[in-house]
Design a protein around this nucleic acid. Sequence first.
DNA 1: CGCGTTTGACCTGCGC
DNA 2: GCGCAGGTCAAACGCG
Length: 246
Amino acid sequence: MSTTSQAMLNQQSLFEEHAPSDQMGFVPFPPNLTFPNSMGCYQSLKAFNTMINTSPNSLSSDAPSTTTNLTETLLASATTKPREDFTCNLGGAQLLSLQSSSANLWARGEQLSDCLSIKRSRGDDHHMHDHNRHLGVPHAMKMKKIKARRKVREPRFCFKTMSDVDVLDDGYKWRKYGQKVVKNTQHPRSYYRCTQDNCRVKKRVERLAEDPRMVITTYEGRHGHSPSNDVEDSQNHNSQLNNFFW
DNA sequence: CGCGTTTGACCTGCGC
DNA sequence: GCGCAGGTCAAACGCG
């Protein structure tokens, strides 16, 4: 058995071991797909889409079975079925869940982007600070309250991937904006935002508490642009597949 | 100098 | 209403 296929088997067993069986809808591992260990989520998504289109009826009963495009259903369910997850085993990477929980979704509406665009379009933060200073702290607080009031739910899903590196290459450029130690875990959670202008897509990266070898990457929102990196198979990246997912 | 990361402070939502 | 935990902000810092 080749090293790669052995690794694939090992990964799959890991996924099954850690899978919350009450929430999962496993997809049988397709023999025609191969996943190198270091595969990024970009390739995983592509493989996922391929696999779903190949075997659309192979999900468990709580997963959609009539659509040939599961992803669409996933995205739809994110807005119609809050707090419901399901999981698909991808072999090399696992699409853990797609959820739209009111507690977890923090995308904000136009007021926030307006505030951000005011700040960023001016080119530096000092203007904003000066702005707040001139207006006084109460106004700054008011702005924050306005920001917080309008929240828009964004589609969200996460990956579980066995990897030594925390940040997987998905073709997009990310800027870290925060890190937090989550309760009952040894590893901090990192927060990233897409660096593209006017793109509000965010991702969270953390390691699985039970198995630090597994990286959980959670995406929130969809990119309205193409990946910025040159990655393998890049011609296909710019295809509708990419836009479909992001 | 510009861009990205770090990190402590702050804000918000949720559970009790 | 209060406390906790998660998420975000932004000043300081590092690096190329």
